[in-house]
């Protein structure tokens, strides 16, 4: 019994870490830029492809397996920098005045385009970059073999959460961002370079999305359509937690992760809609999500 509870909790936290890493970038971008970025799913897919490609290449060239960890981070940084800056500068920048729904749709268009570019660049054959997962092996916890790699995913989620919290509350940049979130026009008038803040936040969001994909890549098959499900899933998490809130994304991930694990273990037939049932339930009780940041109402 105890073993099973432990297993459910670990499975839940494992899935929660995955959810948190893929949704934290989305919530940051929404919090600052007020954009519901559907193309986040494309960043996720690009990160996964870039990492998987690099890892398989490195493996063929005979590099040791642990090099994969460096490649994962390198891939996410490069993907985030390149795609993030291109998209923010060339497209989103010209749209901030538009309706938020229009921007969301524009990012949907971007998502479709980026998805197909993946097909052109990487082809349709799946990539397997299992080396980093294989090299870490497994341990027995609660009578069940667990892979160490998933446990490092948990550690990564903690690092990302703490890092975001520290960057936003303890650094000068974090304070600037808080000001920009509160009132864009006034911060501009005060001499804050809002445009630079937007660019940097968007790039960071893109990097986090790519990191999610890159870190997940070794555990799975990286194939076309990799980013599609992640969009809706991360939306759900972010909405549950309150859009734009990092603690919200954390709590949202843990809630969904653990409830899903309970469903898989006890009521497998409910697995498919547990995420959305939680989302509907939370929204009915707390319309703005669990941790919605305060918003000024315009009269």
């Amino acid at each position: 019994m105890l073993a099973q509870v432990l297993t459910i909790i670990l499975d839940g936290l494992n899935y929660a870490s995955f959810l948190f890493i893929v949704s934290v970038g989305l919530t940051i971008v929404f919090g600052v830029l007020k954009i519901l970025n559907v193309a986040h799913g494309a960043f996720y897919a690009w990160g996964a492809y870039a990492a998987a490609y690099a890892i398989t290449q490195a493996s063929e060239l005979g590099y040791p397996d642990w090099i994969g960890f460096l490649l994962i981070f390198a891939a996410s940084i490069i993907v985030g920098l390149v795609l993030g800056s291109i998209i923010e500068r060339l497209i989103l920048r010209k749209m901030y005045a538009q309706d938020e729904v229009l921007i969301a749709l524009a990012t949907f268009g971007l998502f479709l385009v980026l998805e197909d570019i993946i097909l052109v660049v990487f082809g349709v054959d799946p990539y397997f970059a299992y080396q980093p997962m294989a090299v870490l092996g497994n341990v027995v916890i609660g009578g069940v073999f667990r892979d160490v790699y998933s446990l490092t995913l948990f550690a990564l989620a903690v690092v990302v959460a703490v890092g975001c919290w520290w960057a936003l509350t303890k650094t000068k940049w974090g304070k600037l961002i808080a000001v920009v979130i509160y009132d864009r026009e006034i911060s501009q008038a005060m001499g804050i370079n809002v445009s630079a803040v937007y660019l940097i936040v968007f790039i960071v969001g893109a990097m986090l999305g790519a990191l999610g994909g890159a870190y997940v890549a070794p555990t799975t098959s990286v194939a076309p359509g990799f980013g599609i499900d992640v969009i809706v899933l991360s939306f759900a998490v972010v909405v549950i937690g309150g859009m734009g809130s990092i603690p919200g994304a954390l709590i949202g991930s843990v809630m969904v992760g653990v409830l899903r694990a309970i469903a898989v273990h006890q009521f497998p037939e409910l697995e498919l809609f547990v995420v959305f049932a939680v989302m509907a339930g939370v929204l009915i009780i707390r319309p703005e999500g669990l941790f919605a940041p305060p918003k000024a109402r315009t009269i």
Binding site: F235, F273, F276, P287
Partner: peptide
């Protein structure tokens, strides 16, 4: 329920309801 919601929350709550129906139909 929905008439109290605006903006992105309205959009997303609708999404949640539709996905619950989807989950049921698939089953």
């Amino acid at each position: 329920i929905l008439r109290k919601y605006r903006g992105i929350f309205f959009a997303m709550l609708n999404l949640a309801f539709s996905m619950v129906l989807y989950g049921i139909l698939v089953k």
